[in-house]
Design a binder for these strands. Structure first.
Lengths: 109, 109
DNA sequence: AGAACCCTCACACATGTCTGCTAAGGTTCG
DNA sequence: CGAACCTTAGCAGACATGTGTGAGGGTTCT
């Protein structure tokens, strides 16, 4: 079959076989398949799994976060909207903000 | 007091007063306070709330996602690590990947 | 002062994510 | 063929997030 089966990959990566299937389902680490449908993990996949572990232990990132980060990469509209929102949030002293403050006085219920 | 109270802001923004408090707690939309501690929403906050609604209806983004996107902006280490991981994932045809494939043959259980 | 509103705290429940385990059945390889 | 492993599907439980509701008590404005 040429490649590690799910349990072997689990042993080497430190994840459970269950999680490997979960990560596959969610498109985070997708191994190729044998004729009969067995998952076959190669070096690339093992590296990705190790990377995932690292992200989790160092930053507390779970799969769901990664999936979202991937959306940010792949959907420019999303990325733009999110970035704009956050930028407006952070620069509480931007000129736009300042302009707005001017109007707040006119808003007194 | 000069500004909208939580219920007024809720009415104009389409969120519930409960959610406005929740968003405040989580630092997503933080209004200033009156002497007595009342939340006071101005134009800037109303805009942020509208933006949030928009993000949700258009992209299905909840507050938790925004909080994570904010982390990505503010923590360069995290951003770098995540980006690297995703990049390795997407370019399944990069030369690094290609190099790795060479070794996979040597890995046959 | 008093009506109407706000505050925080807390309980509660729905939904989603992660993870393990089991069941029924197919694959691999000696 | 048969042992050992794999597949998908589903239940289950732990934890986080989102949202409503109520209690007890303070604030605002007339």
């Amino acid at each position: 079959m040429n490649g590690l089966t799910v349990t072997e990959a689990a042993a080497r990566s430190g994840w459970s076989a269950r999680m490997l299937r979960y990560l596959d389902e969610h498109g985070l680490v997708v191994p190729r398949r044998s004729e009969g449908g067995y998952r076959l993990y190669g070096l690339a996949e093992l590296n990705r799994l190790a990377g995932l572990r690292d992200l989790r232990t160092r930053f507390g990132i779970d799969p769901a976060h990664l999936a979202f980060a991937r959306r940010l990469r792949r959907e420019p509209d999303l990325r733009g909207a999110v970035d704009a929102w956050l930028a407006a949030a952070d620069d509480s002293s931007s000129w736009i903000e300042w302009e707005q403050r001017k109007h707040e006085r006119l808003l007194a219920a």
